[in-house]
Nucleic acid binder design. Structure first.
Length: 119
DNA sequence: CTTTTGACTGGTG
DNA sequence: CCACCAGCCAAAA
């Protein structure tokens, strides 16, 4: 179970706290290989039917809102981030390093946890 | 079945 | 700074 890579990506993204952001590469690295970063982006593309997945909190390695075109309105992603206290300027997150949330640091190495799992 | 294409990243030139 | 390439995973044609 849970063998789907996408599902693991969604689980990680769900743990990103409001007001924080992570990157495709950081998530991919946490799940095994940084090279799978594109797949993480692809998973986000497929997360449309997943209202519980805050895809707007995932940006590229320099804090650029590369996926903003997939949020209906072109500025929807930016609006969502601003509403959470993340300042955005020119499609880029201001003070990206301060908002960056690394799953490899904040989540247990084995993920998702096999016990006390609530889905 | 094979090929192409992505919301990516790091390295090389 | 820009162009190109390889690596990884899944879906669509």
């Amino acid at each position: 179970m849970g063998s789907d890579y996408f599902e693991r990506v969604y689980e990680v993204v769900r743990r990103i706290p409001a007001g924080r952001v992570s990157t495709y590469g950081a998530i991919a690295e946490f799940l095994g290989s940084v090279s799978a970063a594109r797949t993480v982006g692809y998973a986000m593309n497929a997360s449309h039917s997943r209202p519980d997945v805050p895809a707007h909190r995932v940006v590229n390695r320099i804090g650029l809102l590369t996926g903003k075109h997939h949020f209906g309105g072109t500025q929807m992603m930016e609006e969502l981030l601003r509403s959470e206290g993340v300042e955005v300027e020119d499609d880029r997150i201001v003070g990206f390093a301060q908002h960056f949330w690394d799953p490899s640091v904040h989540l247990p190495r084995e993920f998702p946890p096999t016990e006390g799992r609530s889905l």
